[in-house]
Every structure is written in C-alpha cells, then in structure tokens.
Simulated scan of single mutants.
Amino acid sequence: MSQSASHENNVRTGLVYGLLAFGMWGVGPVYFKAVASVTPLEVLAHRIIWSVVLLLLFISWRRQWSRLWALMSDPRRLGGLLITALLVAANWLTFINAVSQGEIVAASLGYFIIPLFSVLLGVVFFSERLRLWQMVAILLALCGVANEVVTVGRLPIIALTLAVTFGLYGLVRKKLAVDPLLGLTVETLLLAPLALGYLAWLGYQGSLHFAHDSPLLDLLLALGGVVTTLPLVCFAAAANRLPLTTIGVLHYLAPSITFLLAVSVYNEPFGSHRLITFAFIWLALAVFSGDGWLYQRKRVPVLQGG
C-alpha cells in the first residue's frame, strides 16, 4: 500500500472513530433518561465506580500498569488530576441533573459554548491573541447569553456550568499533558472512595436503588462505565488519526444530536427567546469555524514550504 493510500485509510478510520465518539456523546441523554428514576448523585457514583472497573480492565489489556503507577507516583500530575477529577465530576453531575429535570436543550447550549469559552481561556492562561473574527464570534456568543438573561431573567446556569467546568478541565489537562485514558483512570480512582462512601451511606439509609429495584435498572447503572469509557476510547483513536480542524468540526455533532433529541423526541419547549439565543450561538460558531478554516488554509502552504 502506498503512503498516500495508507494516509487516506488512516483518516477514514479516524473519521469513523470520531463519528462514533461524538455520536455516542450526542445520544447520551437517552441513557440518562433511562435511569432518571435514580437520584443524579447515585447515578454519578455508579458512573464513577463502573468506569474504574472498565478502565482497569482496559489498562490490563494494554499492559499499562507501569505507566499508570508512574503517573500516580508523580505528585504534580496527581494534584492536577485531582483538580480535573473534581471538574469532570461537577460536569457529569450537572449534565445528569439537567437530563433528569428536562433541561437537555440547556445542556446542549452549554456544549455549543465550550469552543468559544476555550478560546477565552487560551487568551487568559496562554497569552494567545484573538483574531478579529474570533472576537466577533465571542461577542455574538455573549449576545446570546445576554438575550437569555434579558428574556428569562436569569443566567443560563446549566449551560454556563457545563461550559466552564469542561473548559477548565481541558485547560488543566492540556497543562498536564497526560494520556486521555490513563488520566481518566486516575481521575475515577481518585473519585472512587467518595462514590463508594456515598453508595454505602445510601445503603445504610435504605435509599439505595442498586440491587433494590429491578435487575434491568441494575444493568443500566452498571452500563454507566461503558457510557463513560467507550466514547473516550473512540475519541482517543480519532484524535491520533485526524487533524485538529476535523476534530473541531466533529465536536459540534454531539450537542447537535443532543439538541435534536431534546426538541423532537423529548418535546422540550423551544420558544422564540431560546431560538434567538441559539441563533446567536450558532452564528458565533459559524464565524469561529470559518475563521479557523481560513486561517489553517493560509498556514498550510507556509508549513509545507518550510
């Protein structure tokens, strides 16, 4: 097989993995609706515990115990992963709670905002300079948030919490520069004692759902590990094969699917004020993506010539 054919095959494989990853993240609300009878905190605890089980099996399969131990023996990285563990737990809990409360549209808004918030974090923490159209995109997004405040009378707390926690999570992870799966393994291991303690407390109080409701619900709660880990495995495989610009475009697939599920399947209200908010955000993302695409096209010839 020629080098170009091998590259094309690699890209196609990466695209399949990317579509699987973001597609699974997009349909996530279906799973969390199925376990909505369980309190969000218990769902979160099961998600952590069963993710630990699955991730440790995956570490064994990849024979990465030495790398995992080295990571956990590094005080700086372990401290950083404790911060990211708390951030991802807050993000997961917010999303689970949003689905259970019928606020999936608000959750999708949060994930649409993430790329724009990440740019702001780059300016603040990495001294990155905003290009003109990036500034326009951020101003459009701020107009969308302002519309929500004016028309509803309050900040879009769910959307902003999801954007801020995930954005900060990505920022700290970037500084730590750890393998995605190894990092998630350490994060869930750090959260596991809290999760186990909470489940034990629920059992002592007699309010634990697991093993007390139905075998089907038990199975669904145990599948929380698959729901958490499998998309990340696919994402890691895609990220190793695709350019960042393609990954950036695929990112919008997940909140788009989530949004369509909320409106067409779960019949969440989507009034004119929310339409205006989303119109600003979508326009901001179109400007942001278009600017990134043009900027990349200008840079490629220079890189090739160098």
Rank of each mutant, 00 (worst) to 15 (best):
M1A: 11
H7Y: 12
E8V: 12
N10L: 08
N10R: 09
T13M: 15
T13I: 08
G18P: 01
G18M: 02
M24F: 12
M24E: 02
M24L: 14
G28Q: 05
Y31W: 00
Y31G: 01
K33Q: 11
K33E: 12
A34K: 03
A34D: 01
V35N: 07
T39G: 11
I49P: 04
I49V: 14
V52D: 06
L55K: 10
L56I: 05
L57K: 02
L57C: 05
F58V: 09
R62K: 14
R63S: 11
Q64R: 10
Q64A: 09
A70V: 03
L71M: 05
L71W: 06
M72D: 02
G79P: 11
L81T: 00
L81R: 00
I83E: 03
T84P: 13
A85C: 11
A85G: 10
L87W: 13
L87P: 13
L87V: 12
A89N: 13
L93K: 08
A98F: 05
I104P: 05
V105N: 05
A106E: 05
S108D: 08
I114K: 00
P115Q: 00
P115E: 03
S118K: 11
V119N: 13
L120E: 03
L120Q: 06
L121D: 14
V124N: 07
V124K: 06
V124F: 14
L130F: 01
R131Q: 11
W133L: 09
Q134N: 03
V136C: 15
L139E: 06
A146L: 15
A146S: 15
N147A: 12
V149M: 15
A159S: 10
L160D: 02
L162C: 07
A163S: 09
T165K: 05
G170W: 08
R173Y: 06
K174P: 01
P180A: 08
E187R: 04
A192M: 12
A200Y: 07
L202Q: 09
L202E: 08
L202N: 01
H209W: 12
F210P: 10
D213R: 10
S214D: 11
L217S: 05
D218S: 07
D218W: 15
L219K: 09
L221G: 01
V227R: 10
T229H: 05
L232C: 07
N240S: 14
L244H: 02
H251N: 15
H251Y: 14
L260E: 00
A262Q: 05
S264N: 12
V265T: 07
V265D: 00
V265I: 09
F270N: 06
F270H: 04
S272I: 15
H273N: 13
A279Q: 05
V287L: 14
S289C: 11
G290L: 07
G292E: 10
R297Y: 04
R297I: 00
K298V: 00
L303E: 12
L303M: 14
L303S: 12
G306Y: 07
